[in-house]
Design a protein around this nucleic acid. Structure first.
Length: 485
RNA sequence: GGGGGCGUAGCUCAGUCGGUAGAGCAUCGGCCUUUUAAGCCGCCGGUCGCAGGUUCGAGUCCUGCCGCCCUCACCA
């Protein structure tokens, strides 16, 4: 009895035996359960000594059986709920009527128990059940009890198994929730309101990426899954919503990596009458609140390095970094192209600004380990950004880098409709055209007048990676894309 | 797409030079009322990712394919 099918059949027949005993193997309502952590909290106040049973201190707990120790007429179960683990003590003496059903328990089943709290003689907090309910028969055995599920492919394909057998995985997603909640709370405290804009868009824009295409049957029209919410959020600035943010699932039809998933989550925000300097403070502020909610540690390990998120983060000019690490001036196009040759970059058909950016990515980015804002980008790669008032070849844009990875991207927003229209019309060779697709309604909105503003997008999956010391974006996305087997 | 690695029982993993497929956990049977990965005794469980090839003989060597991981490229 040990192939996968035989193991399952064994459990199916146990479910039938339970029914024959008059026990529903799939339970039903089980009200007034306490979480295991609140049970522990209560037990702490009882000053129990090892071996004590606290008469009258009753509790009801439900969860999944993750360990089982059977000693004839005494059974210890380790029960896991959302908060943690708790030991059940089941004795034939207290549970005579239930005993035939208890003999049919397996690892992985959900059960509920009701009884008095106590400590065993080794001091383990135990719920000594005098009432018991079968809540769900599991038909598949859980993974090995010590190592859990460690096969990476199975972990992603059967994330539900990963989650219940590897508590540290569940902890990462609890922290993810806390981080995103902190981001929301921070922005709300700054006077922002949360909005929702279309994920299905007739024209895609706001970023440079290939989209996923779909089709609406009734309207018989192609639609794109958004690569960015930018152009819609800016329309809200036109409409008089002065501080808006969206937690936006974006979709980009590009490659997969430890830092890229085809669908990913950003927080994108726009603030009227601000600029990109204010946006730097927003990045610092949301990160700081997230860290405080987690553990308050601003110096945190990430792999082999220690990252220091203490505010303020370093602010470095794009051109200065290019000189420091590539030894070329942004303005010296010949030198930049020569450097590109040295790096083996095929730059024949590329616009100057694109070549500069290629050189920057290859020479500078991997040096940006500690949290750093890089500001004032070559204007030609920033079609949605306001130009520097003293140097129109530079755009008022920054990117936030941590551990060599882009965490966020922000602009002092372009609100001149004529300049925006020109930028849309301009073809950026070697850059793809996605950022430069004409959106006439967006131009129309700018013609009605958009207040000067700062705008920012922060990759929340990446923020969660950094703050939870996760090496891959798949470790912070519950169901990362996998090819069907 | 390029390069590298991995794929053996339900799970976690061994498998030497090419010579009968192994362990632990789980399951199943037995003992057991204070265990903590409970313990002890006994049994069952395999298309070695798939398909070919070389060989007297392939988990092992070769080729192709599938899946996953890492990395580079792409994706600012």
């Amino acid at each position: 009895m040990s192939t996968e099918e035989e193991l399952k059949q064994e459990r199916v027949s146990k479910a039938e035996k339970l029914r024959a005993l008059g026990v529903d193997p799939y339970g039903g309502r089980y009200p007034d359960v306490m979480s295991t952590d609140s049970v522990r909290e209560r037990a702490d106040g009882l000053n129990l000594a090892a071996g004590d049973m606290a008469e009258g201190e009753r509790a009801r707990v439900a969860g999944r059986i993750v360990l089982q120790r059977v000693m004839g007429n005494l059974v210890f179960l380790t029960i896991r709920d959302a908060a943690g683990d708790l030991q059940f003590g089941l004795s034939k003496k207290l549970l005579k009527d239930h005993w035939p059903a208890i003999k049919l328990l397996d690892l992985g089943d959900f059960v509920g128990g009701d009884g008095c709290l106590g400590l065993t003689k080794t001091g383990e907090l135990t719920l000594w059940a005098d009432d018991f309910k079968m809540l769900c028969k599991a038909l598949h055995p859980p993974p090995e009890k010590w190592h859990g599920l460690s096969d990476v492919e199975l972990r992603y394909r059967h994330r539900y198994v990963d989650l219940f057998s590897n508590p540290e995985v569940r902890a990462v997603f609890q922290r993810r929730s806390a981080i995103i909640q902190a981001v929301r709370d921070y922005l709300i405290s700054c006077g922002y309101i949360e909005v929702e804009t279309p994920a299905l868009q007739p024209i895609y824009g706001g970023a440079a990426a290939r989209p996923f295409t779909t089709h609406h049957n009734t309207l018989d029209m192609d639609l794109f899954l958004r690569i960015s919410p930018e152009l819609y959020l800016k329309r809200l600035l036109v409409g008089g919503m002065e501080r808006v943010f969206e937690v936006s699932r974006n979709f980009r039809n590009e490659g997969l990596s430890t830092k890229h998933n085809p669908e990913f989550t950003m927080v994108e925000l726009y603030e009227a009458y601000a600029d990109y300097n204010v946006m730097m403070e927003r990045v610092e502020g949301m990160t700081a609140l997230a860290i405080e909610r987690l553990d308050g540690k601003f110096k945190r390990p990430y792999g082999e390095v220690e990252l220091d998120y203490t505010v303020p983060w370093s602010r470095r000019k794009y051109g200065d970094l290019l000189e420091e690490f590539a030894s070329v001036r942004m303005t010296d196009v010949d030198a930049v192209r020569k450097k590109a040759d040295e790096l083996g970059i095929e730059h024949g058909g590329m616009a100057d600004a694109v070549v500069i950016n290629e050189v920057f990515e290859r020479t500078v980015e991997h040096h940006l380990i500690q949290p750093t804002f890089v500001y004032d980008y070559p204007a030609a790669v920033c079609p949605l950004t306001r130009r520097h008032p003293e140097d129109p070849s530079v755009a008022l844009r920054f990117e936030a880098f941590v551990n060599g990875m882009e965490l966020g991207n922000a602009y002092t927003e372009l609100n001149d409709p004529r300049v925006q229209e020109e930028n849309f019309k301009q073809q950026l060779s070697g850059q793809g055209e996605t950022m430069a697709i004409m959106d006439e309604d967006f131009i129309l909105s700018l013609e009605y007048g958009m207040p000067p503003a700062g705008g920012l997008g922060v990759g929340l999956d990446r923020l969660v990676m950094l703050l939870t010391d996760s090496k891959s974006i798949r470790d912070v996305i519950l169901f990362p894309l996998q090819r069907p087997k």
